[in-house]
């Protein structure tokens, strides 16, 4: 009899750890939502949910590119600076070239092009000259930020055509455009990572670069492309963000790289490469975004917020370790 009780207890404990292990982040997210709903009557309002997805969209889009990069065992520290650089480039093009629809096209192309170029340069240095991604993207980060300041003389670019604001502030069927953009990017990324050759190669290169090469994968080209993707998505976020602010801010996106890396890692992607998922990244980005929103909603002191954020990141990563050990 006694033994039976012990066995059931053992079983329930084991199933609980398994539950935590397999759906840890989803559960953490759920707990978080329930907690904040208890403490703030405004948390679950339609308008706040729109607010959350709107806020999360910026970092979540960058996190997609970062997921690709981290899956190859790399890192991209330049994304925050690229948000600023692409934002100021796009907004300045918007002001200087022609009338609205054409100007918007050119501005988008310019902004995305800068992101792609920065990613390409990072990729070339990493693959051709064999320099670690950390150093290369650190350099690209300061260079990009520097150029953003030089280009604008440290001042924001403002007084933009009012139509531009639609990109960041407009809604289609009640859903904000940045939120739609985020859903679109995640959809594409999911297909690319899970259903295409390139996606498979990304996992393989991160899992074991030399084995991937000897399996006939052009590892350099895979690595080059993930940095281009990361740069382009950072630029897309930069353009959406500057539309929301109706200005190009050279000081935008400061420390975004850390938020984004945290989202990716909390989402279960290993910094050593080869393991992770795009859905995990989405949940990670939501977890962190909702945390920031909820703590502001219940008016938690901002010093305390920093500590809470750090603790949550540690807990999430610990959960992930638990998963690997089993």
């Amino acid at each position: 009899m006694q033994r039976e009780v012990a066995a059931t207890r053992d079983f329930s404990r084991r199933s609980l750890t398994r539950l935590l292990r397999d759906y840890g982040i989803a559960i953490a997210l759920l707990v978080e939502i329930i907690l904040f709903a208890q403490f703030s009557p405004y948390f679950l309002t339609a308008e706040n949910l729109v607010n959350i997805t709107l806020q999360v969209s910026i970092t979540a889009i960058i996190a997609v590119g970062m997921t690709f990069v981290i899956l190859t065992a790399g890192i991209d520290l330049s994304v925050g600076a690229l948000v600023a650089l692409s934002g100021v480039i796009a907004t300045s093009f918007l002001k200087s070239v022609g009338s609205f629809p054409v100007a918007l096209m050119i501005a988008m192309l310019g902004g995305l092009g800068v992101g792609a170029l920065a990613g390409f340069i990072a990729g070339v240095f990493i693959t051709r000259f064999n320099i670690t991604p950390f150093i290369v993207t650190l350099a690209i980060m300061t260079i990009s930020r520097g150029i953003a300041f030089m280009y604008t003389d440290g001042r924001p670019i403002w007084d933009l055509p009012p139509e531009f604001a639609f990109l960041g502030s407009g809604r289609v069927a009640g859903i904000p455009i940045p939120t739609l953009a985020m859903m679109f990017v995640y959809g594409i990324a999911y297909v690319v990572l899970n259903q295409t050759r390139f996606g498979r190669y990304v996992y393989a290169v991160g899992g074991n670069k030399e084995a991937a090469r000897l399996s006939g994968i052009n590892t350099n080209s895979v690595i080059l492309w993930v940095y281009v993707i990361s740069g382009v998505l950072a630029a897309l976020s930069g353009i959406l963000l500057s539309s929301r602010m109706n200005s190009g801010q050279p000081n935008a996106g400061v420390m975004y790289e850390l938020d984004v890396i945290a989202a990716v890692v909390v989402g279960g992607t290993s910094l050593f490469g080869g393991r992770g998922s795009i859905i995990g990244t989405f949940l990670g980005a939501m977890l962190i975004g909702i945390l920031r929103n909820g703590l502001n909603l219940v008016n938690v002191n901002s010093y305390v917020q920093m500590v809470v954020l750090g603790v949550v990141i540690l807990l999430a990563v610990m959960l992930d370790q638990l998963k690997k050990r089993s």
């Binding site: 924001p156 801010q249 920031r292 909603l297």
Partner: peptide
């Protein structure tokens, strides 16, 4: 954080809460 993007997000949260 004294920058426009972060301030926008913080202010959005405050507007929801109040």
């Amino acid at each position: 954080e004294g920058v426009r993007d972060r301030a926008m997000q913080a202010a959005s949260d405050v507007l929801q809460a109040h």
